[in-house]
């Protein structure tokens, strides 16, 4: 029996892309984890934190901590939300020692999905099959705050039928940036179009990432450009058979 994991699916997956959460649950169950979904969960608080509303972010963070305090592992289909909890909660609770301790304790058990597979349970082959040429987008927070770089690629490497074609600008930001995408819509739009060009140059049919928010930005821009490329979360790729 694998470890017990609590899913934190993130608000964006819950409301917009539930199939990503379901795929993640499938993969985790397939490798023998006992999967739990604490129903009181909502959001990690990042939108408020990134917009400069610390008090509001703190309120939501406290809620998150109370919901997940008991969990052994908290697995998240997002590098950005993982980093919010494991890195930025410390800043939020800088002046509240008691909450800071709780945030540290929970933060140490929060793991981004691909990292959970490659570093915690150490499984790279989950028995997936997907006949497609894909390219991988490094989401910024996973890459730079959590140092996730080779793990997802190793996982993709074990998917039968799949070919990974790297794009020339894999590490460049897609331009999402939370509220940045709407506050600085034109700049963000320019950034994602540059990224889309890089994706199209690979000739891949699918862009894979470990963050649904980046994929929302990418899919939105690909759709707008009528480009024949679709997006898939890594969990969806790994759940394919």
């Amino acid at each position: 029996m694998g470890p017990r994991v609590a899913l934190f699916v993130t608000c964006i997956v819950d409301q917009l892309f539930p199939r990503v959460g379901l795929a993640m649950a499938d993969v985790l169950e397939r490798i023998g984890c006992e999967v739990d979904f604490p129903e009181a969960q909502t959001c990690c608080g990042q939108p408020a934190f990134n917009s400069g509303y610390r008090a509001e972010a703190r309120d939501v963070a406290r809620h998150f901590l109370s919901v997940f305090e008991q969990a052994e592992y908290i697995v998240v289909p997002s590098g950005s939300c993982t980093s919010m909890i494991s890195h930025h909660y410390a800043e939020l609770f800088r002046k509240e020692p008691e909450w800071l301790d709780r945030a540290r304790a929970v933060g140490s058990r929060v793991v981004e999905f691909s990292t959970f597979l490659t570093e915690v349970v150490k499984v790279e082959d989950v028995g997936a099959r997907l006949d497609a040429v894909v390219t991988y987008h490094d989401s910024c927070h996973a890459l730079r705050e959590l140092s996730v770089k080779s793990g997802p690629r190793r996982l993709l490497g074990r998917v039968r039928g799949l070919t990974l074609k790297e794009m020339d600008r894999a590490e460049e930001c897609c331009g999402f940036g939370g509220t940045f995408s709407v506050k600085f819509a034109e700049t963000s739009g320019g950034m994602v179009r540059t990224k889309v060009d890089s994706i199209l140059r690979t000739g891949a049919e699918i862009v894979v990432s470990i963050d649904s928010s980046c994929l929302m930005q990418l899919q939105g821009a690909l759709a707008r450009a009528n480009a024949p490329v679709r997006t898939m979360h890594l969990a969806e790729v790994l759940a394919s058979r």
Binding site: P18, L22, E39, A185, V192, Q219
Partner: peptide, 17 residues
């Protein structure tokens, strides 16, 4: 103004769950 918009899922993850 820049991109297409995803629809909210008719059934959220928690409802699926």
């Amino acid at each position: 103004s820049q991109r297409d918009l995803p629809r909210p899922a008719s059934k959220s993850f928690r409802q699926h769950w």
